[in-house]
Design a protein around this nucleic acid. Sequence first.
DNA 1: CTGACTGACACACCTTTGGGGGGC
DNA 2: TGCCCCCCTTTGGTGTGTCAGTCA
Length: 927
Amino acid sequence: MRSKNETKRSKESSSGTLADVSLEAVGKLLRRCNKTGRKKFENSLRQCDSIGKSESGAKRDEEDVDSRVRGNSLETAGGSKDAKKKVSWEEKVDRESFQCSFTDTKEELDDADWEDGPVPILNSVGDHEVTIELNETPDSTRRKRIRRASAEDKELAELVHKVHLLCLLARGRLIDRACDDALIQATLLSLLPVHLLHISKVAKPTVKDLRPLVFWFQNNFRVRSTSVSKSFYSALTFALETHEGTQEEIAALSVALFRALNLTTRFVSILDVASLKPDADKTEYSSEDASRSSRGIFSTSTPMVARKQDVSVSLGKSPSCNERDNVCGTSQMGSCRSKDCHPTSNNTPPKGSCNAYEVNDRMLDTLACGAHHDISEAVLNKKSQGLKRRGDLEFEMQLKMALSATAVPTADREMGSGVNYLNGNENFSYSKRMKRIVSEESRNSSQSISTAVGSRKVGSPLYWAEVYCKGENLTGKWVHIDAINAIIDGEQNVEALAAACKTSLRYAVAFAGNGAKDVTRRYCLKWYQIASQRVNSIWWDAVLAPLRDFEVTATSGSVHLEKEHTGSSSGHEQAKSLNISDRAVIATRNSLEDMELETKALTEPLPTNQQAYKNHQLYAIEKWLNKDQVLHPKGPIVGFCSGHPVYPRTCVQTLKTRERWLREGLQVKINEHPVKELKRSSKVHKVQDPESDNYVGGNSKRTIELYGKWQLEPLDLPHAVNGIVPKNDHGNVEVWSEKCLPPGTMHLRLPRVFYVAKRLEIDYAPAMVGFEFKNGQSYPVFDGIVVCAEFGDAIVEAYAEEEERREAVEKKRNEMQAISRWYQLLSSVVTRQRLENLYGDSSSSVASVSTKSVNGKLDVQVDGSPNDEQSLACQQDVHENRPAGPSAAMPENHEHVFLTENQSFDEDNLVVTRRCHCGFTVQVEEL
DNA sequence: CTGACTGACACACCTTTGGGGGGC
DNA sequence: TGCCCCCCTTTGGTGTGTCAGTCA
């Protein structure tokens, strides 16, 4: 259950890497999330308990509940029969309804109506275990309430989404930095055949130039299911050494190779973050193992930390249990280069190959490759016969779909174009591979491939490269290169492929030079589908803004590199030597890409379903407009959807009432009629017309009149004349903004300024700046005054004087108050001393000591600090505690003197004891 | 299977110009 | 006596977004 997974995660995340720190941070969030759920769960259980108690009297405490919630071993039998009953009851409940998924349990418990049906549980007799039948009845399904996500859930989901995004951004930068590593790049270059090195000298590389390189790469590097090291850099070097790595590592190697060849390259990653909507992920995986559902957000996406054990263990159970760790799915199917499949491959087997990963790889390769299709079929058949779980069936379909999505478009394009991309000495036959894939595809199709999308995110394209090909188009172009699957310039297929693998292409981010840029628009054809799944664009832009600068700088540096081909000079020197024309090129390149992405955004195809138009950024259907929206002008019609004309969103105008426009400093033109009239609510009727019996439909309006922007003109308020501020019916001025001020007046937002205006006998009006809604009523909120502009300076000047005077008075008052309080304090000190002398001492004789009330003068020094002694002379009745002997000798009007050397300080009680030589002591608490 | 439609639910927004009593 | 400040009490209707279910 949850706690076990958490423990496991915390154990794994002990290395302190960025990923681990991120994981931990997100873990906290999740714990907070689960805590909320747990509270409800506990409440539900308590309700449960109360039922149990009422019927059996079994005693349970909260710890019991906690122990159950934590999924620890169930409470063992107590000594009594009741206790035993309780255990069986719990076991049964655990089995029946609290199975596996904590969140599911919470849902069920929340939804259960505990009051309606008392569960006949604990009324059995004897030692027999009690069985609870929780059969679904038609009533229960009818009464089943759907728990909707609350605002808190949504906020939490958004928080998780943002944290996850930041983590993945950081991860992307980490990979990008590793791709710049000189050693890795040099190693890659050393592996590259000589004939492929020429590409670094091509001034304007094109897609055609890159093809041999990409296929050489794909032929020499294969995808493995899991990473072997926690450090990405070491994992990358290991992948380089073994020619095997995760999808992420292989993609990174391809980027490093392109960069080594002086190609301007970005590492692109789909940030497959946790959903912005609460419970969306849970729903998505509802059919999967419950253990997986509680694994946290990182399980749905790019693994931040390799989970070796998860893989090996999960594979034992099901070949599909680890979605992203077994990421080789499609990729390996697409590339399909296990040694069995490719005897001609020059892959070197990984060191220490006899391990879990090797087994995983082999299993998945076996599953994926046509050569072993029978085996996979047998495995799948066995599974479907044995378990018949929906998730397994879906996974089976998923594999097929992913395969088709990867293979077919590439095959079509490559075969259709008839380009022979291979050099003569390449012994790998791409067409053969494609044939095999296609043949497998046909076999699969015979098994009634359902288009139902599965629940597994296996094999989705998550990482690729973007190479800037100056030879493409006239101006150059960023070209998508998926070296893992040898897909070049296939940007239009990425979305479909990802969708087939249940990965939503919400964020595609390109990394370069330690920076990043959102390039989702390039790969997303249906923006309207993902727009609502993305985080607030203002926040996202703010996050990316500094990273974009880095990215621009990095890709601009490469411009110079391409131009000059000065391989010997360092990047830094090159950057320094950038001249103005280069910068122009850079600006053009960046702006061109921005334009390209913007154009894509503006040329989105029309959605085919009506609901998509509801919040579509570009198009609108009249039917789906809000009540305060109209089409103006009503045209042009850009298309039709289900018979409804589609208009550009720019035609949609928002209407407002006169009063609302007034707040924006606009007023409705004379003779303009309302565009739309809405019915007022009944409550407004009452407010406006409390004596409804007398209502004759006169001035009071039963409709809300709405006006459009085109019916407005700038506000024309009455001018201030002869120093008189024009006021409204309520005797004030509504100051919603500066535009609402009558001409010739000014707003003075100063506290108590009205007093000054009144004193100077200047006309003013309270400035009403808004309303406060309390007790079902709204009250105006005032802030400062509105006066004629000519009196502004005079008032401000007088106000300053007034404030000075007021502050002086205030200061004097404070001082007086301080003196008064000191007096009170010292009085109480003296009183306390007197009482202590009277009653405080332990010996009874003290009480009998004769005390003498004198009207003495007390000089008390109070230590603020040793150097700053404050003395106060207080006339005070003092009860002195005189020791029997010397006191008698003291004169009647003795004046106590407390010398510093005679005082002592009690550190525990912070009490200073001062002593007069006469024996009189006074205790003062240190403040 | 998809999309249109409907009902239910959660939540945000809108509403829009006090009055009495006590202290100073 | 007049002014100022605090406290009283704590809406509810409507629109919108979202989701699930049903039906064509």
